[in-house]
């Protein structure tokens, strides 16, 4: 579903840029923040990132799925914390940090192992996942230009609660 949206966006871009962009061959790039969770390099669109917090004490919230570790108090705002590792079905890790995202007005913190780098990526090099991939939370992938590996594009849509 998110792929549709991505494609749709691309098309719109193509249409608007066709006239002027054709001439000077503009590259359509997007800034990503790459973080690491369970040996995966996951990239999230940098505009979504509100801030990165360390040493947060998370208040346990009962009766929610495991991967929601609880809530934190970020300067008076209550923010739910989703553990990416648990969401991917991996064991949790003690030493982790929180990346606070703002997804269409919904503030959500994700618990990750570490933050890797900030990088500009040409939208056109992001490829869709193989059609039979069962990888959760990921909507696309691309090789990193510096050859340090592959970035998986975090599918923020999947972070939102279903129903």
């Amino acid at each position: 579903m998110n792929e549709d949206i991505l494609f749709a966006k691309d098309q719109v871009f193509d249409l608007t840029n066709e006239d002027e962009a054709a001439a000077d061959d503009m590259v359509d790039t997007q800034k990503y923040l790459i973080f690491i969770a369970d040996d995966l390099k996951l990239g999230v669109i940098a505009e979504y990132v509100v801030e990165i917090l360390t040493n947060q004490s998370i208040t346990y919230l009962p009766r929610v799925p495991d991967f929601i570790r609880g809530i934190i108090n970020m300067r008076g705002q209550i923010i739910p914390i989703l553990d990416i590792r648990l969401r991917l079905g991996k064991p949790p890790q003690e030493d982790s940090l929180v990346v606070v995202l703002n997804l269409d007005g919904t503030q959500l913190g994700i618990l990750v192992d570490a933050v890797d780098q900030m990088i500009d990526i040409d939208r056109s090099v992001i490829l869709p996942m193989p059609s039979h991939s069962t990888q959760l939370l990921v909507s696309g992938m691309c090789s990193l230009p510096d050859g340090s590996g592959t970035m998986m594009v975090l599918d923020c849509e999947q972070l939102m609660p279903h129903e």
């Binding site: 009962p62 009766r63 929610v64 799925p65 929601i68 809530i71 209550i78 503030q107 959500l108």
Partner: peptide, 20 residues
């Protein structure tokens, strides 16, 4: 304080969790 709608969508209110 109301809980974020994100967690409210998991129906915590039905388990007696009203806010924080």
């Amino acid at each position: 304080k109301q809980l974020p709608s994100y967690v409210n969508s998991y129906n915590v209110k039905n388990f007696g969790i009203n806010g924080c």
